[in-house]
Computed example of a mutant assay.
Amino acid sequence: MILTTKDLNIAYGDNLVVKDLNIDIPEHKTTIIIGANGSGKSTMLKTISRIIPYQSGKIILNGNDISNFDTKELAKKLSILPQSQEIADGLTVGELVSYGRFPYQSSLGRLSEHDYQVINWALKVTGTDVFKYRLIDSLSGGQRQRVWIAMALAQETETIFLDEPTTYLDLAHQLEVLKLLDNLNKKQARTIVMVLHDLNQAARFADYIIAMKSGKVIKAGKPEAVISAEVLKEIFNIEAIIGQDPLTGKPMCISYNIAEGADKNEKEKYSDYTNAVSNF
């Protein structure tokens, strides 16, 4: 395991939002965190990347307590792409990606020859080298997201955290970003940890899934163990029909209904459809 939490407690003021959290993030795998809004997914991600503090417990990275790392040292080990990013007007793609070299810069703040080599590599591997001299504001949502991933890659970290990297993107751009991350994991051996809302995307691209509810882990494991009718009912309060993705063989949520409060006709339709899928 590359990262582990032990009895982690996270609070906003007096409100404890994550309690006694114990998770293991496997090395060189893609881990995806799922759960309803307010379940603590993003809070957990920000905490284990040390963006926000925690009240008690431990976060262990590569065998060392994360609190023992100074900021630049930690930034050489993990990078994070938050859900929303703010950039200064007039910044080019190349300039933004160069910010990923901050942990390695001296007090003079000058880029070395190696820095430029890493920046060009990050641009190339994400397919954003053709945009190097374009303004960030001129890019589409999918292109811009790839540039942010390039900046994270320029940090040369073995672990990359992403908070809902496909938000606000259309289906084609969502798939483009997820395939890029999958490629980085498979070919660059990067450990990828991200929050996703789309269950089928999570099942398709994850090696390991953590399902959360009310600040607690309800189930963690391979997609086949987590994307099940029982788990989804517990974390989302839905009755889900689970099938198999014909392209990947992974579990797939075909349809779902609200577990409580559904009228009789809807429940009968659900039951008939469930039987049909089972027989198929």
Rank of each mutant, 00 (worst) to 15 (best):
A11Y: 04
G13F: 07
D14N: 15
V18K: 00
T31R: 08
N37C: 11
K41F: 10
T43W: 08
T47H: 03
T47N: 04
R50T: 11
I52S: 11
P53V: 07
P53Q: 12
K58P: 01
I59D: 05
I59Q: 06
D65H: 09
I66C: 07
T71D: 11
E73W: 01
A75R: 09
L78V: 08
S79P: 01
I80S: 05
S84D: 13
A88I: 05
D89N: 14
G94N: 10
G94Y: 00
L96V: 12
L96I: 12
G100D: 04
F102I: 12
R110I: 09
L111D: 08
E113N: 12
I119N: 04
I119Y: 04
W121Y: 14
A122T: 02
A122Q: 02
L123V: 08
L123C: 11
L123M: 14
K124Y: 12
D129R: 01
D129K: 07
Y133E: 15
Q145G: 06
R146H: 04
M151A: 10
D163I: 04
P165E: 11
T167G: 05
L171V: 14
H173M: 01
Q174A: 05
L175M: 13
E176P: 00
V177H: 04
L181K: 07
N183Y: 12
K186Q: 15
Q188S: 12
A189M: 08
A189I: 00
I192P: 05
L196G: 10
Q201W: 07
A206M: 10
D207N: 15
Y208W: 15
K216N: 12
V217A: 10
K219P: 05
A220L: 01
K222N: 06
A225D: 15
V226S: 03
L232P: 03
K233N: 15
K233T: 09
F236P: 02
E239G: 07
I241D: 06
I241M: 12
G243I: 03
T248R: 06
G249I: 03
G249C: 04
K250H: 11
C253K: 11
I254A: 08
S255P: 00
S255L: 09
Y256N: 06
A259S: 15
A259I: 04
A259R: 06
E266L: 14
E268C: 00
S271I: 01
Y273N: 09
S278Y: 10
